[in-house]
């Protein structure tokens, strides 16, 4: 399973490096979302600073939608998804590989957006440990839930519009918990962030475990 996950993850990342879609489209989109929030709330710099964690995680969620959509669009072209099924790869390995590749892209985006909130919102980054662990746990949860939603929508003609409808409600607890954990860390009260961090960890564990079991049947039905 891990061999298959590495193979699929490396393939997906190689596709992204070659196509530069993440670099040229997803990253600029994510920064634009931050800029738009800044325009909308600019008259009240205090509000912008206090809302920064929530705005940051909303921007991450929107970017995740694009990354997930892209990950499954690649498999839709020229029957590539059938090629994956024919290969005999372990479906759990395919799930882990695709989720890991999405997570890798999101982590890079989160660093970029972190710089964005510092520059645009004047946020002072504190509680580095909680901030970093929140990013890791929330990213794992978003990537796992997103990969499941992606394969669920993959075989449908309306997949582009269906994916946000499937993912956003599921991702809401991640956005909430990650925002609360970041708020606590940025307020210098990291200890209050740990319960939210544990919730994020549990969410990620549940969706990774569910994906390992459910991805195969969903891939067959797609």
């Amino acid at each position: 399973m891990l061999r298959d996950a590495l193979l699929v993850g490396a393939k997906d990342l190689r596709v992204e490096v070659r196509s530069r879609v993440a670099l040229n489209q997803v990253a600029p989109f994510a920064v634009l979302v931050l800029v738009l929030f800044a325009f909308a709330l600019d008259p009240d710099r205090g509000l912008l600073a206090s809302a920064a964690p929530g705005l940051y995680w909303i921007a991450v969620t929107f970017s995740a939608l694009l990354a997930i959509q892209r990950s499954f669009a690649v498999e839709a072209a020229d029957g590539a998804r059938d090629g994956l099924r024919l290969s005999g790869l372990d479906p759990a390995g395919i799930f882990l590989g695709k989720a890991a590749a999405i997570a890798g892209q999101l982590l890079v985006l989160e660093v970029l957006l972190g710089v964005g909130v510092v520059v645009l919102y004047g946020t002072e980054l504190r509680g580095g440990t909680v901030l970093a662990l929140t990013c890791l746990a929330a990213t794992a949860g978003l990537a796992a839930a997103g990969t499941l939603a992606g394969v669920l929508a993959a075989g449908l003609r309306v997949r582009e519009t269906l994916l946000p409808l499937l993912l956003v409600p599921v991702a809401a607890p991640v956005v909430l918990a990650a925002t609360k954990a970041w708020e606590a860390a940025l307020d210098g009260q990291s200890d209050q962030g740990w319960p939210w961090l544990r919730l994020l960890g549990a969410f990620a564990a549940v969706y990774v475990a569910f994906g390992v079991v459910a991805f195969g049947p969903l891939l067959e039905e797609a």
Binding site: K11, V15, R18, A77, D78, G79, A80, D82, G83
Partner: peptide, 12 residues
């Protein structure tokens, strides 16, 4: 299987 689709990734 060699089908109507070739199962290739355009960017690779």
């Amino acid at each position: 299987l060699l089908g109507h689709a070739t199962f290739l990734y355009d960017d690779l």
